[in-house]
Design a protein around this nucleic acid. Structure first.
Lengths: 350, 350
DNA sequence: GTGAAAGCGCTAACAA
DNA sequence: TTGTTAGCGCTTTCAC
């Protein structure tokens, strides 16, 4: 007697064997029907199997299938920061692309913790996922090199990993910053501060500083390092703004490089009684649902989040489907373009 | 010759057999080490195995393990709506609880589409997940009854499913609405409109209407059905507000039952030149990061989103770990309490 | 056109 | 204390 028969009948799961018995065929025939492999199968046999499948409400065990086929038809997504609603849109894009291609999506959050990120990657590897999309945390992850060497299908998202020749989907951050500075300069702003979360090795943050300096220079404006403000926390932010307003020459504008940071800045400005846009202009990175409802409505740099997500997933799936034995796979960096959304937080244009 | 040996050596995955060979032991010994089952294992043997594992960078195949053990140590989450940032916090709570208990989390989005929801449930079933957390879409899902009958570990989140005796984690919506109405009445508002997305069978929406009527009645105020506004889209919302202001007696307040809807209402009010809180009070459901930055800062009903997520996951894991052969499992409804966050959108209190 | 059987990588019962 | 082996549910050659 087989052990599974000892379980109560209701609780036992329906297997391919049950279907085969019910249909009066062999399990390989059932398998063929399930996988649309009826080369020259008799219509009658096929129908018998189909009937048995629906009668028993059979659902094939994906573990067994995956184990046998050495693939799971699912991909993993590792996010470094879920707090930012920007990622919700990215997620939707990824999800849509997966659904269309018949892939399932497994999501893990590394919360910008490099160790957690490593565990997440290992977790996905153990689950035999066919590929991964990773928004890398700040720091070095030795596993990435191994995966790239092994040609494991991989797409990095939003952040570039230095020294790694891998598929990467990003937004042009230099361009985004340039759009911002151009707009501010066109409104006759000259003393423009930039606020960032600690940059460390995170590429978008580095690129936004780079773009800031480049754009200022192109407009013949001097780059003043005291206008580059790294914000660790709320108190920090308040302090920076106080400093900014302490000198004789008041700043004209603040360029905030993150939508959560923008809220912190607004808080601090409010606390100090500094009015936007009367006393200072404010321009934020990332367009959100609430940008236009802030006080005042916020001028922002908009990133095509949904498209980025979709692009990354499509690229990954393409990569998975490419047989590396027969074909060469050449990693690419796909770059999306940001745009400017003008509202009232930088004052009126004329 | 075994087929796997035909693959190039670098690409072949390390299996338990490789580790066993490298350590000079049997595969069952390796298995014992991996699963901490060294009853009385020689320290030396254990060390040899551990060395081989790290030398080969061995990562056990979770599919094989799951297939054998008939469990996967992972749970599924089915969300009906990812757009609302409320769910990000819920997600964090679920994730934390899972991580702590050593479970992985698989997420699927049904976008309030009952058919997609069905597919998602089936997908999870095929993957042999140990349990699911479901924020059910609007409509009847016949599968739910089957799962409950089979005692499949299941927790419903935020929305109750009518006629189903299953674990459910919700926030007290009648209480939330009562808090809102009490606050408005205390500010001497009498003509209070309620705005909702189409209710259909979705429990929180129904309960919020119920709470609204109950609270008004308790304050001796008449319930006027023309003040209950169902909003399908933006134009709809504009129309409703026009109607509201068309009569002789102007409304005192709008109670918005959804944070996305609140933004739509703000839009419409702005378009019509109606000022908050001077011309009308506005009170919103769901506290968000940006609530205090809206114009004016919004008074809201806050729901303990993180705690809800965590509570649901903990309940599910407890349910999974309970052996139904030996122990009875009694489904519960766990109810969290909302609270009121007072800001300026309802006017000053005295 | 269909069936028999090997085997994917692992665990656990049983042997030694 | 450690090894041998059956089998989890499925796909896929190879026979017939």
């Amino acid at each position: 007697m087989k052990p599974r028969d000892q379980l109560t009948p209701q609780k036992r799961k329906i297997t391919i064997e049950d279907v085969a018995k019910a249909a009066g065929v062999s399990i390989s025939t059932v398998s063929r029907v399930m996988n649309n492999n009826y080369h020259h199968m008799a219509e009658e046999t096929k129908q018998k199997v189909l009937d048995a499948i629906s009668a028993l409400d059979y659902r094939p065990n994906a573990l067994a299938k995956g184990l046998k086929q050495m693939k799971t038809n699912s991909i993993g997504l590792i996010l470094a920061n879920l707090q930012n609603p920007f990622w919700l849109l990215v997620l939707e894009g990824i999800e849509d692309a997966c659904q269309e291609a018949g892939y399932s999506l497994l999501i893990l959050n590394s919360r910008d913790d490099i160790e957690k990120e490593g565990n997440n990657v290992k977790e996905f590897l153990m689950r035999q996922l066919d590929g991964m999309i990773i928004n890398p945390a700040d720091g070095e992850n030795a596993l990435f090199n191994v995966l790239v060497d092994e040609q494991f299908p991989l797409v990095f998202l939003n952040r570039k990993v230095a020294g790694l020749n891998a598929d990467t989907v990003v937004v042009d951050n230099v361009r985004g910053t340039t759009l911002a500075i151009n707009h501010l300069v066109s409104l006759n702003k000259k003393k423009i501060a930039i606020f960032l979360y600690p940059t460390s090795g995170i590429s978008p943050r580095l690129e936004r500083i780079e773009g800031y300096k480049k754009a200022l220079t192109e407009h013949g404006l001097e780059v003043d390092d005291s206008l580059i403000k790294i914000v660790e926390n709320k108190d920090d932010c308040l302090e920076h703004i106080k400093q900014l307003f302490a000198g004789d020459e008041k700043p004209d504008a603040i360029f905030s490089t993150n939508n959560m940071l923008t809220l912190v800045i607004l808080d601090a400005l409010g606390e100090l009684g500094i009015k936007v846009p009367e006393d200072i202009s404010l321009l934020g990175y990332d367009e959100t649902e609430w940008s236009k409802h802030l006080s005042p409505p916020l001028t922002t740099i908009k990133q095509p989040a949904y498209e980025m997500g979709r692009g990354a997933a499509e690229r990954l799936i393409q990569s998975i489907k490419t047989n590396r034995q027969e074909e060469q796979w050449e990693p690419e960096t796909i770059q999306f373009e940001p745009s400017l959304v003008v509202r009232r937080s930088c004052g009126e244009s004329f």
